[in-house]
């Protein structure tokens, strides 16, 4: 959905709530005054940004990409980083690759365009045979990470990760793993766990679900034996004692979470579902540096720190060329895992 909703629009919406009462006036002509979202220029040419920052979320509203994009826009605006305003818009489809293709194709050389990317997109590019990949963008910064949880129903016989992994190793097919979409972070985590105990990833019995809302009932009803998903997805059920958290996928223990990391439990596996932003291709080095410093400044705002806290996102900042190298590394790593899983050829 090509939707742009950010703070300034929300505010505008409030003024419009009453006219909306006559929403059908679309037909009779309710005209519109308020011009676009801040095309203001007027600053010196060397300044950046000189126009509104456009942030694309390559997914439907509501998901992680969308929330990241909106949080960036809000922190840029309200944190006082930029004066020119910002807009968020969504381009769903193709697991994010439609958005990527459009972003690269239409915005070459425009430093005011940003797009949110993440670990899932790296896999999706392979999976959908996308013609455009992340090499075609100019990476700006990695910003956040979320960690996966490995959980079982409260009445499961597995009290810790070791017990689960022993059964898994003995008969890989007997453990039905639930998790997110095919080729996503959750499945990659399970594949890495399998490799850690010497199981061929293609032997894993992995059942994908569209998200936490669909996966949670499947865990509680006993459909799947164990599940991997974002920690936040299971937080309510874990707190209510309906699920047992066996381990988290972070490198270091997470404060306030009563479970070991997978590494602590004895398996050398960690995984972070990271997200960041990229700019279009063909921007100059100066423009890239300016965008990086804008995002760094945004990262330091009070608003952004609140966003991290409210969403339980790990601060995972990495910028510029280092981020480019990180993406390359991730690409190799994920592609290999997806090949092992038989998802891509």
């Amino acid at each position: 959905m090509r939707i742009s909703r950010n703070v300034s629009r929300k505010r505008r919406l409030a003024q419009w709530a009453a006219p909306l009462a006559a929403g059908l006036l679309v037909l009779t002509g309710c005209g519109g005054s308020g011009g676009g979202g801040g095309e203001g220029g007027g600053e010196a040419a060397a300044e950046y940004p000189t126009e509104a920052i456009q942030v694309m979320a390559p997914a439907d509203p509501g998901g992680g990409y969308d929330m990241t994009a909106r949080s960036i826009a809000r922190s840029l605006d309200e944190g006082g980083v930029i004066e020119t305003g910002s807009d968020v818009y969504n381009v769903p489809g193709g697991s994010g690759t439609i958005g990527l293709t459009q972003f690269v194709g239409e915005n070459a050389g425009d430093p005011h365009q940003l797009m949110v990317i993440g670990k899932i997109l790296v896999g999706a590019i392979e999976q959908t045979d996308s013609q455009v990949d992340l090499d075609d963008t100019t990476p700006i910064a990695r910003l956040t990470a979320e960690y996966d949880a490995i959980a079982v129903p409260a009445d499961s016989k597995y009290k810790n990760l070791k017990q689960l992994m022993e059964d898994f190793k003995a008969d890989p097919g007997s453990i039905a793993w639930g998790g997110g979409s095919v080729g996503g972070v959750d499945q990659i985590l399970v594949a890495k766990l399998a490799e850690a105990v010497g199981i061929e990833p293609s032997k894993i019995n992995y059942i994908p679900y569209s998200g936490g809302g669909e996966l949670t009932p499947a865990v509680l009803s006993g459909d799947v034996d164990a599940a991997a998903s974002g920690l936040a997805e299971f937080a309510d059920q874990i707190a209510a004692g309906e699920m047992r958290l066996l381990a988290v996928s972070s490198e270091e223990p997470i404060e306030g979470v009563d479970a070991p990391t997978i590494i602590e439990a004895g398996y050398d596996v960690s995984i972070a579902n990271w997200r960041g932003v990229v700019a279009p291709p063909e921007i100059t080095d100066e423009q890239r540096a300016a965008a990086v410093s804008m995002i760094e400044e945004m990262h330091d705002t009070e608003e952004w720190q609140q966003v991290l806290e409210a969403n339980n996102w790990e601060d995972y900042l990495m910028t510029g060329e280092k981020f480019s190298e990180y993406i390359d590394q991730e690409d190799k790593d994920i592609t290999k895992t997806l090949k092992d899983l038989g998802i891509v050829e």
Partner: peptide, 18 residues
């Protein structure tokens, strides 16, 4: 003209659809 202008502004400005 009225119809297309009204729809355009209603969707872009109020609903935030591009």
């Amino acid at each position: 003209v009225l119809f297309s202008v009204a729809v355009y502004f209603f969707f872009t400005e109020v609903l935030g659809v591009r």
